[in-house]
């Protein structure tokens, strides 16, 4: 199973590498989003910077992760169905979209530091939180894009389904990253971090449990 998983992930990455225009498309989407924010807000205060950063992550996640299920032709899923177990397939997609999202969040962080300034006290901690955040966002949106793909809808449906579900996750993430911005004592920080990890675990378990039902015709 681990072997199949790695093959599937490699296949997705290879496809991404060969069709570079979609990869550049997402990169350009990130760049133009950050640039539009910069045009409107200049260099905001640390708290606004944080809020804008997580909003950007949300929109980037919708666009980057939508590719995981929505870009493939529905008929090809029948072919995959004959090859691997559904849970392997979902895990492969989740790994692929999280790694894509990790790269995109690093790019947006870099663009933020160039255009909107770097108001962080603990840069390393913020990068760590944004990496964990991109994994949580992409896990939720991968599953929702599977739902949208099976319903033969576009990424707009994914956004409708996903925004209310990830809003609390974004709240937790932005509260966590406040620690990296200003060295204020936050009493419940570790509890919040554990809650976030538990939520991620819950999303993955639910996805693995429910995906086989979604998969069958």
């Amino acid at each position: 199973m681990a072997n199949n998983l790695m093959v599937l992930v490699r296949k997705d990455m290879l496809m991404e590498w060969r069709q570079k225009h979609t990869l550049y498309g997402v990169g350009l989407y990130v760049a133009s989003t950050v640039f539009a924010i910069y045009m409107m807000s200049g260099q905001p205060e640390a708290k606004q910077w944080n809020a804008l950063f997580w909003l950007t992550q949300l929109f980037v996640a919708v666009n980057a992760v939508a590719k995981s299920f929505l870009q493939e032709h529905p008929n090809r899923f029948r072919y995959y169905f004959t090859l691997v177990k559904p849970t392997t397939f979902l895990m492969a997609k989740m790994i692929y979209s999280s790694s894509l999202m990790l790269v995109m969040s690093l790019i947006s962080l870099m663009l933020y530091s160039i255009l909107l300034g770097w108001p962080l006290e603990q840069g390393g901690l913020f990068i760590l939180i944004s990496l964990v955040g991109s994994i949580s966002l992409s896990a939720v949106f991968t599953f929702l894009s599977a739902i949208a793909a099976r319903a033969q809808q576009n990424s707009a449906l994914m956004a409708i389904l996903g925004f209310p579900l990830v809003t609390p996750v974004l709240m937790i993430l932005s509260n966590l990253s406040l620690k990296a911005i200003s060295p204020v004592y936050q009493p419940g920080w570790w509890v919040l971090a554990i809650v976030l990890l538990a939520l991620d675990l819950l999303v993955i378990i639910l996805g693995v449990a429910l995906f086989p039902f979604l998969w069958q015709e």
Partner: peptide, 15 residues
């Protein structure tokens, strides 16, 4: 599909 979404949403909604 709506059963799958209902289970996913309800299980996340409670926490």
């Amino acid at each position: 599909i709506s059963a799958v979404y209902n289970i996913f949403a309800f299980a996340l909604l409670i926490p």
